[in-house]
C-alpha cells in the first residue's frame, strides 16, 4: 500500500534536491509569466479573433506551452524512475528530453479524448433527436455526460500511468496494460484517486492561506508549492505502480 511518509520525504531525499527544486520552480514560473505576457499583448478591442494573435502573442503562447510540457515530461520521468526502481529520486533536468516526453503525452491524451468526445456527441444527439426518448432526452444527456466525464477522468488517469512505462504515444491505447495495472489493485486505485484529489485540495487551501497573508507576493511561494504538488503526485503514481513489498520480503 501507500507509504505516505515517503511521499512527503522522498523528493527531499535526493542529493541535489535544492538545485533541482529551484530549476523545477523556475520551469513552472515560465508558463505563468508567458500567459500573463500573452494576456497583456492580446488586443481585446480587435473583433476578429485571428487578428488578436500577433507574432508576439503567439510566441508567448508557444513558450508558455513549451514550459508546461517540460513540467509534464518531468512528472512522467519521475514515475518512470519509480517503476524502474531507479536510485535517482529526482531526475536531472534535461529540458529538451522532458519537452519531448510532455509533447508525446499531450498528443496521446488528445488522441484518446477526441474519439470519446465524438461518442458522447453521438449519444447526446440520439437522446435529443429520437422521438420516443426525446421527452426525457435532456435528462438522459446529462446522465450520459456525467458518466462520460467520470469514465474519461478514470481512463485518462490509468492511461497516463500506462504511458509512464515507456513514453510511447501508443501506450495511451494499450488497454491490456491498463487492465494489468488495475488487476487486483482496484481498491488501491480508488485510494490513489482520493489521494491525488486530496493533494490538490490541500495545496489549494494552503495557497489560499498564503495569499490571504501576503497577497500578490504569495506568487513567490505558490509556484514552488505547485512544483512540490507535482512531485507529490508523481510519487503517489510511482508508489501505485511499484510492486507492493510483502512483510515476508522485508523479513518481518
Amino acid at each position: 500500500m501507500f507509504e505516505l511518509r515517503k511521499v512527503f520525504t522522498n523528493p527531499a531525499g535526493d542529493k541535489d534536491f535544492g538545485k533541482k527544486f529551484i530549476i523545477g520552480s523556475l520551469v513552472m514560473i515560465f508558463p505563468v509569466v508567458f500567459s500573463i505576457i500573452q494576456e497583456f499583448l492580446t488586443k481585446e478591442h480587435t473583433k476578429a479573433i485571428l487578428m488578436q494573435y500577433t507574432p508576439a502573442v503567439l510566441a508567448a503562447s508557444v513558450l508558455a506551452g513549451f514550459f508546461a510540457l517540460v513540467s509534464m515530461g518531468y512528472y512522467f520521468q519521475i514515475i518512470n524512475n519509480r517503476i524502474n526502481s531507479s536510485e535517482e529520486t529526482l531526475p536531472a533536468w534535461k529540458i529538451w528530453k522532458y519537452f519531448t516526453i510532455g509533447l508525446k503525452a499531450f498528443i496521446g491524451i488528445v488522441l484518446l479524448i477526441i474519439p470519446l468526445s465524438l461518442i458522447l456527441v453521438a449519444v447526446v444527439a440520439v437522446c435529443m433527436v429520437l422521438p420516443f426518448i426525446s421527452p426525457i432526452g435532456p435528462i438522459l444527456s446529462i446522465f450520459a455526460a456525467v458518466i462520460y466525464l467520470i469514465l474519461l477522468i478514470l481512463l485518462a488517469l490509468i492511461m497516463n500511468l500506462s504511458f509512464a512505462y515507456d513514453f510511447n504515444i501508443l501506450s495511451y491505447f494499450n488497454f491490456c496494460r491498463a487492465g494489468e495495472i488495475l488487476k487486483g489493485k482496484v481498491f488501491k486505485f480508488l485510494m490513489y484517486i482520493g489521494l491525488i484529489g486530496a493533494v490538490s485540495i490541500l495545496i489549494q487551501m494552503f495557497s489560499f492561506l498564503v495569499f490571504l497573508c501576503v497577497g500578490i507576493i504569495s506568487l513567490i511561494i505558490l509556484i514552488p508549492l505547485a512544483f512540490y504538488a507535482l512531485l507529490l503526485n508523481a510519487e503517489l503514481a510511482g508508489q501505485f505502480l511499484s510492486k507492493d513489498v510483502t512483510k515476508e520480503e522485508i523479513g518481518e
Partner: peptide, 24 residues
Amino acid sequence: WLNYLILLLLLVAVGVIFHFAAML
C-alpha cells in the same frame, strides 16, 4: 507534524473517495 499532514491528506482523501462513491 508530518503525521498530522498525512492525517489531513487522508481525511480529505476519504472525503474525495466517498463523494465519488456517493456520486456513483
